[in-house]
Design a protein around this nucleic acid. Structure first.
Lengths: 113, 113
DNA sequence: ACAGTTATATAGTAATACAGAGTAGCTTCG
DNA sequence: CGAAGCTACTCTGTATTACTATATAACTGT
């Protein structure tokens, strides 16, 4: 899908949170999950900025583990604050998507309902 | 709804395009429509930057008309390119929202598939 | 005359995804 | 051995966008 980057703003972080919540994972794997989801143009650098942000905001626990396939991996899990942030994301998403779909389908009322 | 501004990026312009497509309208009225939609914190300045962008990208026709209630209004209508941009927006929205909802509901498949 | 509403306009800021590149470890294969 | 290729994390700089805050202007009502 072409040029959806602006519409991904604020959404990608939620995706990363959701993916981490499904089980301990690391940056490179998160990137692959997101690409498999359909956002094929998302690159590691983008996910990196998001995981760094999650670290900075203390939403994740971090554990470094060696890999047989390359450099050591930084595994993330959500802490309580991360869980809360994830729930907040889904509430925001629900709100926005319902409003947009409302706009899409509904007639505009001439003036304040 | 608190702090949804990042998630509105790329979405607000689509909303404005859709609202204009429903019939000739002007900035101040567009702002009110958006606020009535539920995005209550969107202010005139934000909509102004969007309409300016639409002008710059030649997506709208402009007609200035006097008002009985204040300064003259700048009425916008979509031209062909604007219609096209609107359709593109809905395609992008459909794509992203379907993927996000997929992520929300579906289990993550262990690897590729 | 003054406040309130309607209405357009603009400069500066913060947040975010992306482009592009670098570093490092491991495997494979000639 | 050495080069390529994949895995994996990191970093710098850039473009886009919504928001803040403010200014300007026209009209209405008291």
């Amino acid at each position: 899908m072409e040029n959806i980057t602006e519409m991904l703003k604020g959404v990608l972080e939620g995706c990363v949170l959701e993916i981490i919540s499904r089980g301990e994972t690391y940056g490179y794997e998160i990137t692959q999950h997101i690409r498999e989801l359909g956002f094929t143009d998302v690159v590691e650098g983008t996910v990196y900025t998001i995981t760094m942000r999650l670290e900075k905001h203390n939403l994740v626990n971090i554990e470094k583990k060696p890999s047989t396939k390359g450099p050591p991996r930084k595994f993330y899990t959500l802490n309580a604050a991360g869980q809360e942030q994830l729930e907040l994301f889904w509430r925001k998403w629900g709100f926005i998507s319902s409003k947009i779909n409302e706009l899409k389908t509904k007639q505009i009322t001439s003036k304040g309902e």
